[in-house]
């Protein structure tokens, strides 16, 4: 999968994620950031949903990790939001299958990762048993 381009970082927050309370922090911080750079309410909700999806995955599968939320810019005036979710869990065995709709190893709907990809404009995932899972997703205004 293609590595995403680096963008100029305007603001960055790191949130440690290990229990569902942290998920709440991720959701509220994402919404706040999305609102700040001018996403409308429906978009804020969608981006927060994507962030929540990723942090829920961390809690459910890896138990512990972190989420970095960034406001980013490219070409001077285009602004966006970047969500980085990283854990040191055992990794996703088959990424291609995890990216398919209705595939789940954990008694869930199996829609999470594909929907994050659908909601966001750019999506990158990397996973291995040694280094855990890294997901980077960006949404531009």
């Amino acid at each position: 999968m293609k590595i995403l381009a680096m963008n100029k970082i305007i603001e960055e927050t790191t949130i440690d994620v290990c229990e569902s309370v942290d998920n709440a922090v991720v959701i509220y911080t994402t919404r706040q950031m999305a609102a700040q750079i001018g996403f409308n309410e429906a978009q804020q909700f969608l981006i927060a949903t994507a962030a929540s999806e990723l942090s829920t995955n961390i809690i459910r599968y890896a138990k512990k990790g972190f989420v970095i939320l960034r406001t980013i810019s490219k070409n001077h005036d285009s602004r966006g939001i970047e969500i980085i979710a990283k854990d040191n869990g055992s990794g996703i065995e088959d990424i291609d299958r995890a990216m398919q709709e209705h595939f789940s190893t954990g008694n869930s709907l199996g829609l999470g990762l594909p929907s994050v990809k659908r909601i966001m404009d750019e999506f990158f995932i990397e996973s291995s048993p040694e280094n855990g899972t890294l997901v980077i997703a960006k949404k531009w205004r």
Binding site: I27, R31, E53, S108, L109, G112
Partner: peptide, 10 residues
């Protein structure tokens, strides 16, 4: 509700 992700929907 702050966000309806797939887990919440489930």
């Amino acid at each position: 509700v702050a966000a309806v992700d797939t887990a919440v929907a489930n």
